[in-house]
Amino acid sequence: MPEFATRLLAWHARAGRHDLPWQRPRTPYRVWLSEIMLQQTQVATVIPYFERFTARFATLPDLAAAPLDEVLHLWTGLGYYARARNLHRAAQQVCEQHSGQLPSELEALSALPGIGRSTAAAILAQAHGQRQPILDGNVKRVLCRHRAVPGWPGETAVQKQLWRIADALTPAGQAADYTQAIMDLGALVCTRARPRCADCPVSADCLARAAGSVADYPQPRPRRALPQRRTCLLLLRRADGSVLLERRPPAGIWGGLWSLPQYEGDLDSLSEWCRQRYGLLPGALQAGDGFVHTFSHFRLHITPLECPVSPADAVLDAPDRLWYNPINPPRLGLAAPVRRLLFA
Rank of each mutant, 00 (worst) to 15 (best):
L260N: 11
A66D: 06
L300M: 13
P2F: 03
R117E: 12
L162K: 09
T27K: 12
Y80W: 11
P21C: 02
V94E: 09
Y29D: 11
C232L: 10
V202I: 15
P311S: 04
Y80E: 10
L234H: 10
L280K: 09
L260Q: 11
V338N: 08
Y217C: 02
P67D: 13
C274S: 08
C232D: 13
I115G: 02
Q159H: 08
P48S: 10
V214P: 06
C232R: 15
A120Q: 08
R229Q: 15
Y263D: 07
Q39H: 07
G212E: 10
D136I: 05
W254G: 03
L68P: 13
F295S: 06
A336H: 12
W163G: 05
V139A: 02
T54N: 12
Y49R: 08
F50H: 07
R141P: 01
G283V: 02
G212V: 01
E306I: 06
E246L: 12
L245T: 03
P201F: 02
T45I: 00
S34A: 15
L87G: 01
R209I: 00
V142Y: 07
L188D: 08
R89E: 13
P133M: 10
P153I: 04
V315I: 14
L235H: 13
E306N: 14
Y80M: 12
I302E: 10
F291T: 09
T170Y: 01
P319W: 06
